[in-house]
Design a binder for these strands. Structure first.
Lengths: 204, 204, 204, 204
DNA sequence: TAATAACCGAGACGGTACGTCATGTCTTCAC
DNA sequence: GTGAAGACATGACGTACCGTCTCGGTTATTA
């Protein structure tokens, strides 16, 4: 529920919308989120400011949609099974592979800058934060839930475990290191996380 | 390196400094971080704007120091050993107790709003982020490192485990739920985190 | 030369035209000329903006035509000889009567507000000013010219006098007091003007 | 009563004030009043918009003061007796001389454009109109009142005449021709006005 | 014990961006 | 092909803050 209510969406200019997405992502990448302004986006997109305010409520809204759109775009190009966790039967290997790919993505500035900006905005702006989580984060976490459920069926994870919590043992540490820069992230690091999470800290 | 270099700190007005801290925290609590302005802080503190710019570089700097000061203040009032993790010999119980206290703190708006604001700013502003982590976050995480080392000595944690990574298994999930509101936080939740982290997801 | 050139006037909607006149006059009366907008007129008249821009060049043009139309309307209702100066043989009395009627009109807000707005626009916008003078002002002044010529024939005005200049001795003062509010206007005032103009300031 | 109430006038920047006056007059002269904008004035004066809004309420206010200031400036440069009507004993000659000078001024674009703009604004904006009249127009008219009083003392004007009305017989016609462009203005024209006004239209 | 620095409050300043409003053009659809 | 509707690029509005600056007025050493 981020959009303003009224205007006639059927008459909306597709060209302007795409130009605005492109301008917003470009500017955030080039000058950073705080220095990205609605005026700047409008000027770069060759669009009137009002066209932005007609369809979005703030630069955060614009960027959120632009980022969502970028994700869909990328997914469509990447092709077949965009978002899914492999299920080779080896849970540890599957999770390590996915987390390694995630590390690579987090280190790519094309992704890092807007994602960081949106996350920061969402931390402080509850409405946007909830939208960000619902549209972007939760669908991805759900993939882990599914994979962990499958692992429970095959006996690789204990039956009593709540997968929604379990996934956080390895996903959240990576997220926090990325967001707060508490420590560097690497493939070795995420491999370790998976090992610790699966086998626990206590001796067995 | 947040402060400006020049002025003579010995002549600094303690009264103004305290008034600025109080105004900054009050405003962030009342109107939120984005609507908190340097002008607003100055007006509320009954202080000239220059007095703020003389000693700090931005509202983020002011708030960071105000928050740090608040922490020390609170600690001093709370008394003896402000930040330390108990070591009763029962690792699980000790960690659960500390995390429960952390949950309570995160749910207290007096702490939540400024902490959230600073974290958000730090996500996007690397300099401030590093300062925030170094001064606030890392010292706290170090306490977990110490407790886990002690647990390794007593055999409650496997010797090969890296405590700096291990603590993230339960600390980061809580942090992420709090920051991104991916799911509610509670004592039951953090208890579960400790159990999962200590004993792992895989059957033994 | 105020209208745009092109469209087919035979297919023009009479209803829209009248609605636009009414809306324009109503808005100027209610909110004043500067706050009267083309969008406002269109909305109030239940008409698309383009319908205004198709037939007029600006809000000043619309108002000018609306005012002209109002004049014709009023004249038609008032009946027979709308604009003519009586010729009873007593020049002073005839002129005083007409000026008194003019004073009454100038004090009527239904006339005052749009006339004032158009005059102001004409002061600054030469094209509109000339149109305003040619279509509205000059025809009325011509009536005075005629009456003064008749007075010259009957010996009530000196033969060498230029009537086009002469009429200004009493018409312009009234106009200036009205427009610039340099002093109040009244029947007594216009009577005095006629006396001064006819007999001069110098002793005889 | 055009200025906003609050700010501390003693700290006002004289340089900015002068730059704003100059920019306002220059812009009105170059692009006309309607295309003169507050933003344009600020940009041309090298001044923040707020500095204009701090001290004036609108572009009309700015222009009014700029014009007043221009008048004083000019008067000061012109020297000794800036605004006074000569009193040679020959009333007709004195008035003709002053009106001829006025004609020359009205035909000078440096004076014409801003004066016209202010007058137009004053026609429609009562507050500004009254200020314009009180500060600019009325003081000048008062000079005629004085001269006519002196003429009454010397017997050149009938004793019963009200000078405040009498002056309008020749001043207002000139004003109307200038403002409304009802007819051209010239020295011959104003000479005629004086003759008609002094000796009347009626035969003697 | 004065002088002389500095910090202090206040707030004006040149700017940037805000979010809104109106302009005049253009396109779509109904009649 | 006129007309209602309204999206569009444009650009000014008047406001809010930014960070810098200058102005007296207290302090609080230093000569």
């Amino acid at each position: 529920m981020v959009k303003k209510p009224a205007p006639d969406a059927t008459r909306r200019s597709e060209k302007s919308r795409r130009a605005i997405y492109a301008a917003a992502l470009a500017l955030v990448g080039e000058v950073g989120y705080p220095k990205t302004t609605v005026e700047g986006i409008a000027a770069r997109a060759g669009v009137g400011k009002q066209t932005i305010y007609r369809w979005w409520g703030s630069k955060a809204d614009v960027l959120l949609e632009a980022f969502l759109d970028l994700g869909e775009q990328t997914a469509r190009e990447a092709g077949q099974e965009p978002y899914a966790i492999p299920d080779t039967g080896d849970l540890a290997a599957d999770l390590k592979a996915v987390l390694r790919a995630t590390v690579d993505e987090l280190l790519d500035p094309r992704f890092d800058v807007p994602a960081r900006a949106l996350t920061a905005e969402g931390v402080v702006n509850e409405q946007l934060g909830r939208e960000f989580v619902a549209k972007l984060l939760e669908p991805q976490l759900q993939l882990y839930v599914d994979r962990l459920r499958s692992a429970q069926d095959s006996g690789a994870v204990r039956p009593g475990i709540d997968p929604r919590i379990a996934l956080e043992l390895f996903v959240s540490p990576l997220a926090q290191r990325w967001l707060q820069r508490t420590a560097p992230i690497s493939h070795a690091y995420t491999d370790t996380l998976i090992d610790y999470a699966l086998h626990g800290l206590a001796p067995r």
